[in-house]
Computed example of a mutant assay.
Amino acid sequence: MTQLVLRTGPEIAQYPPRTTFGPRTLVDFEFVWLLRGSARWDCDEHHLDLRPGTLLLARPGMRDHFRWDPDRTSTHAYVHFRVPDTGELGAPDDWPLTRSLSPADPMAALCGYALWLGSGTPRPGPSRTAHVLTWLLDLFVRGPVPGDVEGHTPLSLHLLRLADHVAATWRSGPARPLPLAELADAAGVSPGHLSRVFRSEYAVGPVAAVELVRLARAATLLQRSNLTVGAVATACGFANPFHFSRRFRATYGVPPRTYRRTRTADDPLAPVARAGLLALAHRLIVENA
């Protein structure tokens, strides 16, 4: 297993409302996970809304910027480390940026244990913490353990109604985008309430969540069909191949044609999994196929 070298942490930092941090250029790897509040993380073309339950891995050379919750104090944990040899984990540029944590997830337990080690008096030797973080890095890069992929949090009644409405709409035509008002009406809640639920549980809004599932469907078609890229774009509700290619590249890191040619072994649901949306995607893509 790849062994990392601990540099700083694990530590906890607290930020008053409207605090910012950066831009800064990282010289090492950094795990960041929120304990309270929220943050906006910007780095080149990446723009992520971070909430408790999301684990971020920033890489050396990244120039990033944090904007913390405008209304309340935010608290996050962080740790800096080096990876002298990535070994079987492959190139860091191919690693995910975020993973979702849950109480039943071993990554969540490892984060908690690392913090506990960091708060001990006296602190244990760095080698023990490094071993814990090595396991965390391995799980983060390789993906969820077997049995974790279905998610441990079932959809609420509101989200079941939303998913069934979206699935019914897609069965009668392309997997088109749905406006927030229509999603909220299907769920039986106000648009504001639905947005708060999604951003609290999934760190993305409902419209963005539906787009991630549409892109996952597109990635599956690219891998497992002979449809042209234009036909995939149409089937997944994108206005034209150019718009589809731009949105696909922003999520999967490569254009659709490159993904089809070089990523045949990739999990098309990986971005959905990182957002914690597997249960929703499963209902839309699998159960209503």
Score class of each variant (00 low, 15 high):
residue 264 T to M: 11
residue 152 H to K: 05
residue 105 D to K: 04
residue 278 L to P: 03
residue 129 T to D: 10
residue 223 Q to R: 15
residue 101 L to E: 05
residue 69 D to S: 01
residue 160 L to A: 09
residue 283 R to W: 03
residue 277 L to I: 06
residue 132 V to R: 01
residue 162 L to H: 07
residue 184 A to P: 11
residue 180 L to K: 12
residue 257 R to K: 13
residue 33 W to R: 05
residue 51 R to S: 00
residue 271 P to V: 14
residue 209 A to R: 01
residue 122 P to W: 13
residue 75 T to N: 01
residue 14 Q to L: 08
residue 189 V to M: 08
residue 256 P to M: 02
residue 239 A to K: 13
residue 199 R to A: 11
residue 85 D to A: 14
residue 227 L to N: 04
residue 179 P to N: 10
residue 127 S to A: 15
residue 175 A to L: 12
residue 209 A to D: 10
residue 14 Q to N: 06
residue 62 M to C: 07
residue 35 L to R: 06
residue 193 H to S: 11
residue 6 L to V: 06
residue 34 L to K: 00
residue 21 F to A: 03
residue 281 A to I: 03
residue 153 T to S: 09
residue 47 H to P: 00
residue 206 P to T: 08
residue 114 A to G: 14
residue 91 A to V: 08
residue 280 L to A: 02
residue 287 E to H: 13
residue 216 A to S: 12
residue 282 H to K: 15
residue 76 H to E: 03
residue 232 V to T: 05
residue 49 D to W: 00
residue 34 L to N: 02
residue 234 T to G: 08
residue 130 A to M: 12
residue 241 P to A: 03
residue 151 G to R: 12
residue 36 R to Q: 11
residue 4 L to C: 02
residue 240 N to C: 09
residue 33 W to V: 03
residue 190 S to A: 14
residue 209 A to V: 03
residue 216 A to P: 06
residue 287 E to Q: 11
residue 268 P to Q: 12
residue 204 V to I: 15
residue 43 C to L: 02
residue 160 L to F: 05
residue 274 R to V: 00
residue 28 D to F: 06
residue 119 S to D: 15
residue 150 E to H: 15
residue 156 S to W: 07
residue 35 L to M: 05
residue 261 R to L: 10
residue 69 D to Y: 01
residue 266 D to S: 13
residue 169 T to D: 11
residue 57 L to S: 10
residue 117 L to W: 04
residue 19 T to V: 10
residue 110 L to T: 10
residue 88 E to Q: 07
residue 15 Y to D: 06
residue 79 V to Q: 10
residue 168 A to E: 09
residue 61 G to N: 04
residue 229 V to T: 13
residue 176 R to F: 01
residue 130 A to H: 09
residue 144 P to M: 09
residue 267 D to A: 15
residue 136 L to A: 13
residue 197 V to E: 09
residue 181 A to K: 09
residue 108 A to F: 13
residue 53 G to H: 00
residue 186 A to Q: 02
residue 129 T to N: 05
residue 76 H to M: 01
residue 138 D to R: 12
residue 49 D to G: 01
residue 256 P to V: 00
residue 157 L to D: 13
residue 277 L to S: 07
residue 199 R to E: 15
residue 208 A to Q: 06
residue 143 G to A: 02
residue 239 A to M: 06
residue 244 F to N: 03
residue 27 V to H: 15
residue 271 P to Y: 11
residue 71 D to I: 02
residue 18 R to G: 09
residue 272 V to I: 05
residue 124 P to E: 08
residue 21 F to S: 05
residue 257 R to W: 04
residue 42 D to F: 00
residue 257 R to G: 07
residue 145 V to I: 11
residue 96 P to R: 07
residue 51 R to I: 00
residue 92 P to H: 04
residue 59 R to V: 05
residue 75 T to L: 09
residue 7 R to Y: 10
residue 81 F to E: 03
residue 226 N to Q: 15
residue 172 S to Y: 05
residue 110 L to G: 02
